[in-house]
Design a protein around this nucleic acid. Structure first.
Lengths: 218, 218
DNA sequence: CCTTATTTTTAGACTTGTCTAAAAATTAAT
DNA sequence: ATTAATTTTTAGACAAGTCTAAAAATAAGG
């Protein structure tokens, strides 16, 4: 079908594109750790294949077909992440690199059976939604902890940063997807937080708070 | 580590090599559906990497390191096959192509955890032995049905041909790994067999009998 | 043992995906 | 609005892996 390289570009464009704005060549290059000239070449190719629209000097956006392809890759990536964590004792900071390889395996039956094997999960271990076999997924309305006020409560639904160091930090403080969090205090001078988690009180910097997304309950 | 292409060559040489004879360039080319000139190029590369010995115009054989690598690939391939059949409802004629992709995923932890998840199976769905994490596997002493005589009994331990058509044939007649088989008659003029399986009597041609391996019990 | 047939290797070309360096287009700034 | 800075594209090169066609080495046959 599509090469691993093509799929990685599609994924990157999809990740960078919100709504239907054009994504610039440089943004893609930066995201993929590659050079702008390589991106230009690939954009032409994706355009020829009908997977992306390419406007020279302006940028590119995925076509409907491209978005569909991206959703299938995301579906595969996230289902494999669930598998690794639920069935193979991986911790959520270890899954990304392996899922990155597994997401390129081509077999419709494989992924649909895997989905069933896992009980049709709706979210991956980081709280991101998993598209169903038609590419549809439910958007959860969630806000960053950083935008919450004193007294607000919610449950952790998503973490933005997936770096190992960040996830290990959360593990150390027993914060996980589903944890209930309440804002006890906001410090004015450095925007830091004092929160109440399931188990204990905790100080969080604004940098941390920007990476925690919650579904508010009150 | 090694590229997918390198791994495929290593697998092919391993498959063709019995004992420590040299495998010819043409044999490899035929096995891999490629051209002899491509094989020559790769043999030089594998030789440079210390994975194979290459004697120009004579052929090649795997080094100890090459054999080790081959065993790890075989381990991965067969564990994935077990996973597909046991957990994801694949039938044994559907697993090969997907396992062929999955065997190239690089992650020691992944494969060791998968092994545990599956209960450390000793054989894959076709009856082939699965190497453990050190590359060791148990050789079962088995003989082709074709070499058995009237009155001999055994259990099916392995099938040589893995083609979909052959495996579907076995399915239709309810013959699977572990099935007990007894030779009731051998026909002289065409070498065909009349056998007794768990459920019924069945005629088998010599071509079929050459692809069925049994562990004899009496 | 010399000639023919087969196998294997070399040489050169092509594809995919990448890079560097230079040219062209766009954007920003005075 | 014209120059300067930035972004993007082109042109040419390279690496991996493959192919075809021709050359070299080996094996086979009389």
């Amino acid at each position: 079908m599509h090469s691993v390289s093509e799929e990685n570009y599609i994924k990157a464009i999809h990740y960078l594109q919100d709504d239907n704005n054009l994504v610039s060549t440089n943004e893609i290059a930066h995201q993929m750790n590659t050079k702008a000239s390589s991106v230009t070449d690939m954009l032409k190719k994706l355009s020829d294949k009908g997977l992306a629209e390419y406007v020279p000097y302006k940028g590119s956006r995925l076509t409907v077909e491209g978005v569909d392809c991206a959703n299938q890759i995301v579906r595969k990536h996230r289902l494999w992440e669930v598998f690794l964590v639920e069935k193979l004792h991986f911790s959520w900071d270890e899954v990304h690199d392996v899922a990155e390889q597994l997401e390129h395996i081509q077999s419709r039956k494989l992924i649909d059976e895997l989905d069933e094997h896992l009980g049709f999960p709706k979210q991956d271990p980081h709280g991101d939604p998993i598209p169903d076999r038609d590419g549809n997924y439910e958007k959860i309305t969630q806000i960053p902890l950083a935008q919450m006020q004193k007294g607000d409560k919610g449950r952790l639904t998503n973490v933005l940063d997936s770096s190992s160091s960040f996830l290990k930090y959360l593990d150390r403080h027993h914060i996980e997807i589903g944890s209930s969090i309440e804002v006890l205090e906001r410090e004015d001078f450095d925007d830091s937080f004092l929160i109440q988690t399931d188990k204990k009180k905790l100080h969080l910097s604004i940098q941390i708070a920007q990476n925690l997304f919650l579904k508010t309950s009150s």
